[in-house]
Amino acid sequence: MSTSFQAMVVTETAPGLFQRAIVSKDLNELPAGEVLIRVRYSSLNYKDGLSASGNRGVTRRYPHTPGIDAAGEVVESSAPAFTAGDHVMVSCYDFGMNTPGGFSQYVRVPAKWVMPLPAPLSLRESMIYGTAGFTAAQSVDRLQRHPVLPDQGKILVTGATGGVGSMAVAMLAMSGYSVAAATGKPEQEHFLRELGAQDIVPRENSIDRSGRMLLKQKWAGVIDTVGGEMLATAIKSTRYGGAVTCCGNVASPDLPLNVYPFILRGVSLLGIDSAECPMSVRIPIWNKIATIWRLPNLEQLATEISLKELDQQIEAILHGKQKGRVILNLDA
């Protein structure tokens, strides 16, 4: 089968210099795998921005096609679980990192990476959620199972205008929680309140550099998407017995913190992993996304772009200027 298609390819043109371009490729150039998929939609995540800019911690070898999310139809499958025409999703694992990803009209992947599209989501809707929505849903689920209950107090969401943060604000609000949204973008207050945030916390008020071991107890729970000093401050501000989820390090991978919140207040720090999360966990979370956490304001979170517009959006997400979710229409 010989078919030409379009994909973004990142190439190292000189040591440490990377160039992004939309190029024509052939199916024969795709890696081995049991399932060939015609991609209809993908989405833009911070990890994609890193991969697209030559970050070796995400992608070791170039040329490379980023995109850790993809949704489309099966074209061919040697795996009995999938047949031509099935609507499916691929996200996480090594997809888009060291295996050609979703910024391409076709992908070929191992069957164990493929998940049936959860009903009643459309392909487009699934990518508005994407890895960001899945990560947010995991975070809300972990707080609920801790348990942190709505009547115990406010939940802080950091990086609230980003993909994970905005999804988390909306999911928490529709689950009955009172949400405080921390952001460095005061102009996005209306956007956050429409998602369900009751309080807006300026970024400068979310970081404490006093050196105090513990801070005033404010939050019943926290969903942190940024790491670093903001995460440390959130932990020190969490109430007795509360929980903090951690899923990002855009601010810093370091955690400047002492043990007192854990041994004097019993605070729990819950790590959220989306990349290697097994299907036994992944599918139930996605079923919740498609049902009880199916957001009524989903379109409000989405900006749809074409491959030609992708480069500009990659620069935006790398500079902290993305709002909500950017989805890539591979047919546009």
Rank of each mutant, 00 (worst) to 15 (best):
G228M: 09
L231C: 09
S274K: 12
G228K: 13
G211D: 00
Y240S: 12
P186W: 01
G196F: 07
R239H: 07
P186M: 06
N258W: 02
V250H: 02
R282T: 06
S206I: 09
L295T: 05
S268N: 14
Y260N: 14
P202A: 04
I289C: 04
G266L: 10
G228Y: 11
C277D: 04
V267W: 00
G163M: 13
N287D: 10
Q188A: 09
V201D: 05
L195W: 13
V179N: 10
W286N: 03
I285Y: 06
K288E: 11
G163Q: 14
L231W: 04
L264M: 14
M171C: 07
W286C: 07
T233F: 00
A180D: 13
H190Y: 03
A160N: 02
I200Y: 08
H190D: 15
A168H: 11
V267E: 06
A180N: 09
Q217I: 08
L295K: 06
I223K: 09
N258M: 06
T161D: 05
A290H: 03
Y260C: 13
E204P: 00
S280E: 11
Y260W: 09
A251G: 06
A234T: 10
Y177I: 15
V169S: 08
D273H: 10
A275C: 10
A232E: 01
A234F: 05
I285W: 08
A234K: 01
P186L: 04
G242A: 11
P202V: 00
G271S: 15
T245E: 10
C246M: 11
R212Y: 02
G162Q: 12
